[in-house]
Nucleic acid binder design. Structure first.
Length: 306
DNA sequence: GCAAGCCTGACC
DNA sequence: GGTCAGGCTTGC
């Protein structure tokens, strides 16, 4: 699943392979993955040079230069290609004559015509979008600080007074951006915090521990080029190497690597949360899996609570 | 049936 | 405004 370390790996790969190259042609094979009209998308991207690549959270922004200074104002201004990989999205750089893999939705043919960037996405949760600088600022502005950049003070301030679960809080991209289900579970284990703990009721010490844990886990995962649980590969088609380092994610029933107790699973905010019931004790004031009392549409959470 | 990012909308 | 359920999607 592409979270921050996987997107960072893709970003670094693209910087090495496609920076300063021009997009000669665009083929949208499935308009569903394009935010907005696919015709406008193709027209907006074609003929521009890749000037820079940046990332915030899980969002990838590719800066495209002016097409032609002598043409109209639209061509003279640059634009940005924003990529969200969603759950199973992949960006790969391949020779143009490479066989087309299933679920290839977009092709960006590079200038010499011998190589291209392909966007593949089995689940089709990913999106590509062509936008102006103002629009990009709006998109990125809705995201909280990039998780590796957030200061301890910002982190503690953001948690203050928050109800609900710390797990849901970590997944909220408006608070801090980049964490998904894998690294949220791993960071909570590292910090020894139960996923149903309320952010606002964390001790300052626990909140600092979590802040350090988030950074530590992400740093290590970036160094190991991410986690390939099922679909994730980098732009060269290589899997990440963090999988053997996972201590709780998708290890339900397996022994905790710290204490040996079986890892448990609880559903929080509709997401599986994996934790060690010994190392991550449930606080007395844990968030309810269904805050605000039981309503008609409430479901019994799956799996026993700690 | 479950996985999961992200958007929308409902609820308090 | 905070918070969470629902729905999208398809392979296992």
């Amino acid at each position: 699943m592409p979270e921050l370390p996987e997107v960072e790996t893709v970003l670094r790969g693209l910087r090495a392979r496609v920076l300063a190259r021009r997009v000669a042609a665009v083929e949208v094979r499935n308009p569903l993955v394009i935010h907005g009209g696919s015709g406008e998308f193709a027209a907006g991207v074609t003929g521009r040079r890749i000037e820079a690549l940046e990332r915030k959270g899980k969002a990838l922004a590719i800066e495209l230069g002016p097409r032609n200074h002598e043409a109209g104002p639209e061509d003279a201004a640059g634009c940005f290609l924003v990529v969200r990989l969603g759950m199973t999205g992949q960006l790969v750089v391949v020779p143009s004559d490479a066989a087309l893999q299933p679920h290839t939705h977009v092709r960006l043919v590079l200038e010499d015509g011998r190589e291209e960037i392909r966007f593949r996405d089995t689940r089709r949760f990913g999106r590509l979008r062509c936008c102006t600088r103002d629009e990009l600022e709006g998109i990125l502005g809705r995201l909280g600080p990039d998780a590796p950049q957030i200061s301890e003070e910002q982190f503690l301030d953001a948690a203050r007074g928050r109800r609900g679960s710390i797990k849901g809080w970590l997944l909220n991209q408006q608070i801090l951006s980049g964490l998904g289900n894998i690294y949220a579970d791993e960071a909570l284990f590292e910090a020894r915090i139960h996923p149903l703990t309320q952010p606002g009721r964390l001790s300052a010490e626990a909140a600092r521990r979590l802040h350090r844990a988030v950074k530590k886990i992400l740093k290590r995962a970036v160094e190991l080029q991410g986690t390939s649980f099922r679909d994730y590969i980098d732009i060269e088609g290589r899997p990440g190497n963090f999988l053997p380092r996972l201590r709780v994610y998708q290890r339900t029933g397996e022994p905790c690597r710290r204490c040996g107790r079986p890892i448990r699973r609880v559903v929080v905010c509709g997401r599986s949360s994996h934790f060690c019931p010994e190392c991550q004790r449930r606080p007395r004031h844990a968030a309810s899996p269904s805050p605000g009392g039981w309503r008609k549409r409430d479901r019994i959470p799956q799996g026993p609570l700690a």
